[in-house]
Simulated scan of single mutants.
Amino acid sequence: MIRKLMGAAVAMVTLATPAVADGLNVTVDGIRNAKGNIVILVFDDARAFDNLDLWSAIDYAQIPSRKGSVRHEFSNLNAGPYAVLLFHDENKDEDLNMTATHLLEGIGATGAPNPQDEPDFHAASVWPGDVRVRIHYDQ
Rank of each mutant, 00 (worst) to 15 (best):
87 F>C: 02
84 V>T: 06
58 I>W: 09
29 D>Q: 11
106 G>N: 07
72 H>Q: 11
127 W>F: 05
33 N>G: 04
18 P>R: 14
50 D>I: 00
2 I>F: 08
41 L>I: 06
30 G>P: 02
28 V>P: 07
113 P>K: 08
96 L>A: 06
48 A>N: 10
45 D>T: 05
57 A>I: 15
109 A>C: 08
14 T>R: 11
115 P>I: 13
66 R>H: 10
103 L>W: 02
60 Y>W: 15
14 T>G: 08
35 K>W: 01
104 L>S: 10
133 V>P: 00
122 H>Y: 13
138 D>G: 12
115 P>K: 07
28 V>K: 04
90 E>N: 01
75 S>F: 05
90 E>F: 02
107 I>H: 01
30 G>C: 09
70 V>Q: 11
45 D>I: 01
82 Y>K: 03
84 V>I: 14
100 A>W: 12
84 V>A: 05
66 R>Y: 10
71 R>C: 02
34 A>C: 07
98 M>I: 04
96 L>H: 06
80 G>Y: 01
63 I>Q: 04
15 L>E: 08
59 D>N: 13
41 L>E: 03
124 A>Y: 02
25 N>H: 07
116 Q>A: 09
24 L>T: 03
27 T>I: 02
60 Y>E: 15
84 V>Y: 01
84 V>M: 04
58 I>L: 14
43 F>A: 00
114 N>F: 05
119 P>F: 01
48 A>H: 11
69 S>W: 12
12 M>G: 05
93 D>P: 10
27 T>R: 07
29 D>Y: 06
104 L>F: 06
97 N>S: 14
42 V>D: 01
28 V>R: 02
135 I>D: 00
55 W>G: 15
50 D>S: 02
116 Q>K: 08
31 I>D: 00
114 N>W: 04
56 S>W: 08
83 A>P: 05
63 I>D: 04
103 L>V: 06
112 A>C: 05
5 L>I: 12
75 S>C: 03
39 V>K: 05
133 V>G: 02
124 A>W: 02
52 L>D: 09
109 A>S: 13
132 R>L: 10
109 A>D: 01
12 M>R: 07
57 A>G: 14
49 F>Q: 00
83 A>M: 02
133 V>I: 13
28 V>D: 01
130 D>H: 12
92 K>W: 09
10 V>P: 09
94 E>F: 11
